[in-house]
Structures are given as structure tokens and as C-alpha cells.
Simulated assay, not measured.
Amino acid sequence: MRIAFNASILRAPRTGIGQYLVELVLALAMDSEFEAWLFNGWGWQNRLPAAALPGYSRWSALVKRGLPNAYALRRMVEQRRFSQKAARADLYHEPSLWPLEFDGPMVMTLHDLTHVHYPHTQPADRLAAIERYAARGVERAQRIMVDSRFIGDELCHHYGVPAERVVVAPLGCAARFHPRSPERLAGRLAALGLQPGRYLLCVGTLEPRKNLQLALRAHARLPAAMRERYPLVLIGMPGWRTEQLEGPMRRAMAGGQVRLLGYQDDDCLAELYAGAHLLLFPSLYEGFGLPVLEAMASGTPVILSRSSALPEVAGGAALYIDPQDDVGCAAAIGALIEDRAQWAALRDAGLVRAQDFSWARCARITAAVYREILGH
């Protein structure tokens, strides 16, 4: 079966959806029945790129401002190039919110409804395009894959999709996320000014939805000696309204209690997970919460908010907080620093829980959908 994928999501910097596509295609490749055709926005390739595709350059923004309907023109060119080969594919799988036109059977993956709950996170023209293409894709797709039951329920409620068209395929965890000894971590972490087991980690785009202000406030409530010994390390790209965090971050960073490391590549991120004392993930809304799974698989306990799809991922293997309660969050952090028995119990529970998720399982569910649609 020839499966066409819209792989333009693999442009740098690679996001969680890009990681989903990479891992899904790799897992599907274990089944010789499937041949992946990857459309990168300009042309086609049969293999995943070794690194993220080049991102849009600074000239893209200039062209967009200077050329009326620049987005629509780019979309038209992409559609034409896509259609040149896609017509020979047996099925088209769109991994995000931007499906291209395709005359044959189609599957779409909807990871979350951020554009519905947080429409102000997008420029008006981009939001209008997302709403138009997402709604069109949901209408056309024979099956819609979701990462969690929570998102499946939201999809049915918001778009009126019958439940039988929705398939839950939980995400997996790459093999690079695993426990590592302090000795193996020391070199990489020392280069970043960190020590194994002596920092708290937050991973995610720097935007209000991730609720990083709560993390900063909770960390600031810890005793001074504890803050000094366990700095808060933030990993992620700048996002919408990052300026809301700039004041609190700047003040905390001035004292060395908060470190902003920005975007990190896959290998570095895996070591940062394994070296952290805990992952703090107070997000307000997630369709899955891949950092939670990656941290658990790395042997790192997780403190997270009891919201959206997060309990589906962590189950009983995490310490939950109210995402509006910085006092309670600080108490949870303090408990996992001072109570070694509780820390060890959560670490062990997380390692067991992470074994319930795999990209092989995600691919099996997805492959079954392909076969059902194509009558195989």
C-alpha cells in the first residue's frame, strides 16, 4: 500500500507533531506492506530526512508582508506539486491541521483543538486558514486519528463527528528516552552548567497555555537554599505572548535560579530528561502530553496538572496539582525533593507506566485503519 504523507511539518525546528510523523513512519516501515511517500512541501521523497528540513527563512515573513495573498499562493503551488504524484497513492494521511486536496481515501490525525480553545494564539489570517482546512479535513477524512480519548470526545462534540469515525492511537516513546547513570550524564550537563539530579525541568513552548508562570511562582516559593540547589530549567521555543514571562524569568534568571536553554536537539533533550530530579508540567491544555511520557520513560518523576488528556498518559504514576495553585505546586516540589521514598516510588511507577505506550502500538492501530479503509 502506497501511503502519501504531508511531511512539510518536518521543517525545523521539529515540533511534537513532526516527531509523531517521524516515529509513525519508522514504525510502519517494519511492515513491508506499506510504502511511505513523503511530500515535503516542494517535492517527494521515499525516506525520512536525516535531520529536520530547512525552516522558512527570514525572507518568508518579508514576502508575506509584501505580497498580497502570499499564503494562498504558496498553498496553490504546494497543492499543484502534491497532486503530481499523490494521485498514484492508495491513501493519503494528513498528520496535522493542513490537509491538501486528494481524490482518494484519506486519514487525518487531529492532535488537539488548541485553535478552538486558544484562538488568540494565532494571527487572524492563519487562524482562518486553520479553521477552514481543519474543518474541511474532518469532513472528508474516512477516519480521524486522535492521541487520546479526551481529544476524541472533544472532536465529536465540536465538529459533530460520529464516534465510529474516530480512532484513538496513543503516542509512543522513542528508545532514546531511558534512565542513565550520573556518570554518563556528567559531561553533557556540565557543558550546560548543570549537575545530574540537581535541577527541575520544564519542557514545552514558552506560551501561556503551558502555564509556565505557575512554575516560576511555585519555584520562587521554595526556600532560598532549595532554589539554589535545584534551579528551574526551561526547555522550549518562544511562542505566543512569550513577553508575559519575560519579567518574571528575567528576575529569576538574574539570581541563577532559572535557566532558559531554549530549543534542544533530540539527543540533548533525552539526557536533560534523564538528569532532572523531576519534570514539572503544569500545562492547562494538552491533547496528549508527550514530555510526560518521555520523562517517565527516562526514570524522572513527574508533577503535572490534572487537566485535559494528561491523566490518560500518567495514570497513577504522577503527582497531580491544581494548575492554578502555586502554593500546592511548591509543596509538591518540596515533597519530591525531601522525601526520597516518595521520589523513588514515583520513579518506579513512571517506568512501569511508560511501558504501556509504544510507537509500535500506535503504528499497529494506524495500519489497521489503513487496511480497513482500503478493504485489505
Rank of each mutant, 00 (worst) to 15 (best):
R217A: 15
R259G: 06
G160I: 05
A360Y: 09
L21C: 04
R74W: 15
C362W: 03
A360M: 13
S148H: 06
I144Y: 03
S298P: 00
T205Y: 06
L62Y: 12
A220R: 12
L10I: 10
H115I: 08
R132F: 09
F177E: 02
R65W: 14
I235K: 02
V313R: 00
D31Q: 09
G375F: 14
L260V: 11
V168Q: 01
A70Q: 02
R11A: 08
E35G: 07
R347G: 08
R47W: 13
P123R: 13
H178Q: 12
I337H: 07
A135Q: 04
L62D: 08
L155R: 00
R184Q: 14
D112P: 00
S181I: 10
E94V: 09
P179H: 10
P123Q: 09
Q142C: 08
W98C: 05
L100G: 02
D112L: 00
L21W: 11
A50N: 13
S358I: 03
C202G: 08
V25A: 07
Q142M: 14
P301K: 01
L28F: 05
G204D: 02
P13D: 02
D103T: 13
P179W: 10
R149T: 12
Q142V: 09
M30D: 13
L24H: 02
M226L: 15
P179N: 06
I130E: 01
H376I: 12
A314L: 03
A191R: 14
M108W: 08
Y263H: 06
T242G: 11
R132Q: 11
M249Y: 10
G275Y: 07
L67E: 04
L245E: 06
H111L: 01
R259K: 14
G16T: 07
A252I: 11
G334P: 06
G16P: 05
A274M: 11
Y370W: 12
Y56D: 09
D147L: 11
C173F: 01
D339T: 06
A87H: 13
L113M: 01
G187P: 08
I333M: 15
